[in-house]
Simulated assay, not measured.
Amino acid sequence: MNKYKLKAPILTAGAIFMAFLMVNVTSNAARMDMVDVSNNNGYMSTAEYVSMRNEFGVKAVTVKISEGGTYKDPYAASNIANVQAAGLYINGYHFARYATKAQAIAEADFAGQTAKAAGLPVGAVLATDVEAEEQNNQSKATNDANNKAFMQEIEKFGYRTDIYTSGSWANNKMTVKSKTGWIAAYPYVVSGKNWYSNNHAWQWSPTAKFRISYGGFDVSQLNDNYYTAGQKSTVKPTNKGAVKVNNKKANKHAYKKSASSKWIKETKTYTLNTAVKLHTSTSTSSNTITILPAGTTVKTDQAIIQGGYRWVRQPRFNGYGYLATGPASNTLEYVKSGATHTYYTVKSGDSWWTIAQRNGLSMTTLASQNGKSIYTTIYPGQRLVVR
């Protein structure tokens, strides 16, 4: 999560200088207990979820329900139905845009109503995904008050609640108490070490691959039964040998897949919230061209995941400068809709070619920045990132 997401490229000291621990790979692989999906993953069939369960040991799926006060994920209902048909536990999340208590309550009412309409069962978790610029601009106390208001309102719909955020934001931008929380942190090397064993769940990769599903997925290890309805899981993989092999493979390649991203077009203007080093290349050990002070406006043309960080490129009069917008959790190809992007809603008769031509892109670029290929079927109502 596009929990990112994290997914939103916000230039904060906490995000830019988040430490990536170097640990040795052990025989104990981080587990793929839970997967979260959104509109960016497109339509997901029951067969895909059965494959996740049987071959990878997935127990639960958390689907995007809504965002802000108006956006409803068009795939929420089908995801919920197909996850349940596959015999997996089902939960949901709402991408938060609130900055005040009143907005938090309004978004909770919208999320709760949308979840009910999509078929999310009573008793499931409906988490608040807190990682956007709106929360970055608030104090910790304000975020805490807003999160509390949101979760109290959600409980009125019969759902349980939780907070999803990045490791760099937890107990920095907001309070995430022990025995609560779903924390995203993508280590340089995944190992048997559980970074967030005191929280409900640890999301350890945004790029996991499943055999019959296209693209990368956010995967999490569950530390208790909170996301499986407080019950002992009855989900039994049919191929335990495959589960063991696939989990180890996911651990081994989780960071490598993220790090091997290609440059993508990203024409944006950033205003720095803190002083940032402008480097000669996409490496924190490369030479520093200059230190850009807080308040500096930076125009960029491309972005890439490299060396554990998300980098953007700044055209300069004599070449380029490179600066980190945060950890590699700010993904590119599989970015969640919480990031600052321009979207296009697919209409009947549209194709990759017509949409790409309309937005000045190649079909390949359009497809890749949405985590898909030009051979992936698109559907009316689907939202695609075009900028």
Rank of each mutant, 00 (worst) to 15 (best):
A127T: 12
N137R: 12
T26G: 04
Q84Y: 05
K59T: 00
F17W: 11
L11P: 01
G112C: 06
M34I: 01
N143G: 15
H94I: 04
Q84E: 15
A104L: 04
Y89T: 00
A127E: 07
E131V: 07
Q135Y: 08
T46K: 14
V35C: 09
A108V: 03
I16G: 03
H94F: 05
G112W: 06
T26D: 04
N82C: 03
E134P: 10
A13P: 06
V122K: 14
S51R: 03
Q84T: 10
N91K: 07
A106N: 14
L11D: 01
T62F: 02
A60D: 02
T142M: 12
L21C: 05
N82K: 02
K140V: 09
D33N: 14
V50L: 06
N24M: 06
Q138L: 12
A118Q: 09
D109S: 13
T142V: 13
A86D: 05
F20N: 12
M32Y: 01
D129A: 12
Y98L: 07
N91F: 02
M52A: 05
A111S: 15
F56N: 05
F110W: 12
V61Q: 01
N137C: 08
V50F: 00
N39D: 10
V83D: 11
K59W: 01
A77N: 12
V130S: 08
K140Q: 11
V58R: 02
T70V: 13
T128V: 15
T114H: 02
T26A: 00
A111Y: 04
T62L: 10
V35G: 09
F17S: 12
L88P: 02
Y75H: 09
P121A: 01
V35A: 11
T128R: 05
S78M: 13
N82T: 04
G68C: 06
S66I: 07
K101S: 08
P74S: 10
T62D: 03
F17R: 14
A111L: 08
A118G: 05
A81M: 13
V25M: 11
D129R: 12
G87R: 01
V50D: 03
N79F: 15
E131G: 09
I90N: 00
M52P: 02
V125H: 02
D129L: 11
F95K: 13
E131D: 07
S38Q: 07
A108S: 05
A76I: 13
F95S: 15
A30T: 06
T100M: 08
F95C: 11
K72F: 11
Y49H: 05
N137D: 12
K72Q: 15
R53A: 01
G112H: 03
F56D: 04
S51K: 05
A47M: 10
N136I: 10
N41C: 10
N40T: 14
A132S: 14
S66D: 07
I90K: 00
T70W: 10
V83N: 05
L126W: 06
A77D: 08
K116F: 12
T114P: 07
V35I: 14
F56A: 04
V122H: 03
Q138R: 15
K140E: 11
A81W: 08
A13L: 11
Q113M: 10
I105G: 06
L88F: 01
S51A: 06
